[in-house]
Write a protein that binds this DNA or RNA. Structure first.
Lengths: 218, 218
DNA sequence: GTTCAACATGAAAGGTGATTCAGGTTACGG
DNA sequence: CCGTAACCTGAATCACCTTTCATGTTGAAC
């Protein structure tokens, strides 16, 4: 069983292991990510690992949950600043793509979770959907989204985001090689995406971009 | 280097290995899928494996390409029978979900390809997108799809399909356990999905379900 | 400045699995 | 009914990894 550290030193060590694990899992994959590699990357002795984690699987689970919390935080934080639902959606997606660009580990690790820790993977997707449903249901009450099952819509949105992140962020970054330039979603692509979402969710016969007129706001 | 079989016997052996590999990769995962397990499942001697494949990675790649060809075939075949674009879309998705239900290996293997064989994974997604783009561009010329980048739309459709397959087929199957009942996409969910797609891609200010009136047809 | 939890360490035990290879077996053309 | 090319086999080799544990170090309370 993993032990929680009891002093500041221990806390630091544990955090270093977690960060190193994220790195190594993302670049080497679960199988090739040996405990030796993780502890080396963390600059920590091999045996120390087992003071804080029961084993490879356990630290993997924690890495997943950690990434999940961070990406959701980035998205909701970005969406919170926006006014209309559409703006919030756009800001949320943009934050998601930015997070993907800065932490390719997210994808690489979630994908592997399919086998390494199906439960953690499921938790990840379900938590994101829950956020979406929350936002969509509110927008629905405000009349900004047509009547529909918000959960189904949430899976649709997440699906689009996931593949766009893969195609337009990760692949793009791979193709550019290590030239350091930050990959961002092209505006053209984000516009098309928002176009589909807007039309797909808008109430009535798709008012396109007409702003709300009753002064209500969220 | 893998050798192609030169006799009927060899061809059969190779095919058995491929089928066994799909099974084992899907149920055990790449790492735990030992060559021993694959050859045992195929009812073939361990050493024989290396007559036909250079190693684990190579047979994995072939399994990916094989699954890809089969799922695309299932989708285009189903779509071919349909009349309008929307019907084709629906039929294609239904075929995809059916294939997913019958071959959970598709997901489990594609996901793992993230690390095992990124190139094969990319090939998989790109080939599917290519099919979609083809169909969407044709529908566009026929005025059934609004002006937009068909490739971007293709990624959006594929993303929705992918997550719906995971959520409403695979997870559902897992939750039901091994009770043998065939998992199908609920009509309610498929309707919602098609609703989003229809509105997202339809020309003009989203005529909802109004059929085309000029008599043109594809 | 002593004491003792808490923390840190890496050699070694105990496993597992990919791949090779030397030696059979099969079956078809002649 | 041979001869031989294609095919088949699994014990043995080699490489690598997780986890344990006996021992050493740190630092904060007193």
């Amino acid at each position: 069983m993993s032990a929680q550290p009891r002093t500041a030193r221990g806390t630091r060590t544990r955090a270093r292991l977690l960060a190193a694990a994220e790195d190594v899992f993302a670049s080497a994959g679960y199988h090739d990510a040996s405990i030796v590699k993780i502890t080396e990357q963390a600059g920590i002795g091999l045996g120390t690992f087992y003071l804080y984690f029961a084993g490879k699987q356990e630290i993997f689970d924690e890495v997943v949950d950690d990434l999940n919390a961070r990406v959701r935080h980035a998205m909701t934080e970005a969406a919170r600043a926006a006014g209309t639902r559409l703006e919030a959606e756009r800001a949320g997606f943009r934050a998601f793509f930015r997070f993907t660009a800065e932490h390719p580990a997210l994808y690489r690790i979630i994908r592997q979770a399919e086998f390494v820790s199906p439960a953690a993977q499921r938790r990840h997707y379900e938590k994101i959907v829950r956020s979406y449903v929350h936002g969509l249901a509110a927008a629905q009450e405000a009349g900004e989204v047509r009547p529909m099952d918000p959960e189904v819509a949430a899976w649709a949105l997440m699906g689009m985001g996931e593949l766009f992140g893969m195609r337009y962020i990760l692949w793009e970054a791979e193709d550019r090689g290590a030239d350091g330039s930050r990959v961002e979603i092209p505006d053209r692509v984000l516009d098309e995406l928002m176009g589909i979402i807007q039309r797909g969710l808008a109430p009535a016969p798709a008012p396109a971009d007409r702003p709300r007129e009753d002064g209500s706001h969220e």
